[in-house]
């Protein structure tokens, strides 16, 4: 794996991490400055430091772009880390929150709470987490009862995902006001997101990522296979359960404010595996940073490509992610990966 070798030398590793951090910071700066109204770096910095919300620049930064930037960073890192954890725990590179139906089950929980108790929308991250957890449990349960092959898991996930998607449509059809922007929700996007709406999700995502990083050694051992992991003294069942809970927490929290954002949980961990290898600590950290950077860049493109019109970020993610993923696969098949 040639690409891995680049990051296997101390110098290569250093360059990679510095580049990734700089890319993310650049994406953040551009995200705050660019849009239907372009703000210079000075205006952005002044608005951020002064906390001024009286000026036009201040209002744009504080009420529109900063919440969107935080949403993109949180959503990207949460989904990428969730995907990385799911792929590691299930020993399945095809698995991700979107593929195995975790996003859909979280989405259904959000749709239900919006339909049944619209006044309790602050609880939607919790509902999304519980929904995601139920989704993980359902898919893993189906796969294990049928032999737990990798393909069965993915197929079960696709079936559950479609079923839950139909349930979301049914809820929205019966209670049209439940999700006013159902199309945006289905594709995924950050328009209209506020800091207040993000706060509870952030309260789940940041500790969730920290917990995944703390459990990186356990994931390393688990990636050897469950029996070998157990022979090395790992309590496989509880560790696997906790990790799947964390994956559900992260995906659920992201879905609660961003909708059904696809691809991030699949392609970012894949790309990071190529770049940093499969040791869990750098892989989780790289996925968090890479996911944040990728979604921020895609959101920036979504807002600026056809400004003043805006695309849902999910469309840009699919346009950017699909070909990139195909390229990764073809490169691997060609023996160059």
């Amino acid at each position: 794996m040639k690409s891995w070798r680049i990051c296997s030398t101390p110098g290569g590793k250093g360059i990679f991490w510095v580049t990734l951090v700089l890319l993310t910071l650049t994406a953040c700066v551009l995200s705050l400055g660019l849009g239907s109204v372009t703000l210079g770096p000075g205006e952005v910095v002044q608005a951020l430091l002064s906390g001024d919300t009286g000026s036009t620049a201040g209002r744009i930064v504080h009420f529109v772009r900063l919440p969107r930037l935080c949403a993109a960073l949180l959503c990207g890192s949460a989904l990428a880390v969730s995907g990385m954890v799911i792929q590691t725990v299930l020993h399945n590179p095809l698995a991700s929150p979107g593929v195995i139906g975790v996003n859909s089950s979280a989405g259904l929980a959000v749709a239900l709470i919006c339909a049944v108790a619209p006044s309790a929308q602050a609880l939607s991250p919790l509902a999304a987490f519980l929904g995601a957890l139920a989704g993980v449990g359902l898919v893993v349960g189906i796969a294990q009862s049928t032999g737990a092959s990798r393909m069965t898991l993915v197929l079960a996930g696709v079936a559950v995902s479609n079923l839950l998607g139909a349930c979301i449509d049914a809820v929205v059809t019966l209670v049209p006001e439940a999700l006013t922007g159902i199309t945006d929700f289905r594709i995924g996007g950050f328009s209209g997101v506020t800091m207040e709406a993000l706060a509870p999700a952030a309260g789940m995502i940041l500790p969730g990522i920290a917990a995944v990083l703390l459990l990186s050694r356990e994931m390393d051992v688990l990636s050897l296979g469950e029996e070998l992991a157990q022979s090395l003294g790992l309590r496989v069942r509880p560790v696997r359960f906790v990790l799947l809970m964390l994956a559900a927490l992260l995906a659920g929290a992201a879905v609660s404010f961003a909708g059904l954002v696809g691809f991030v949980g699949l392609i970012v961990p894949h790309a990071m595996r190529r770049l940093v290898g499969e040791e869990s600590l750098p892989l989780a950290a790289g996925s968090a940073l890479g996911g944040a950077c990728f979604v921020t860049v895609c959101d920036l493109l979504a807002r600026t490509l056809f400004a003043p019109y805006e695309l849902p970020v999910g469309i840009v993610l699919s346009f950017a992610g699909g070909p990139f993923f195909l390229w990764l696969l073809l490169r691997r098949r060609g023996g160059k990966g």
């Binding site: 990636s223 296979g225 022979s231 003294g233 309590r235 595996r273």
Partner: peptide, 22 residues
Amino acid sequence: KPREIARNAAWLTQSRDTPSIQ
């Protein structure tokens, strides 16, 4: 406990997943 077993007996397994690590 699993850890006590692991300090008493090691296992070179026949089939395994090989991760991409050093």
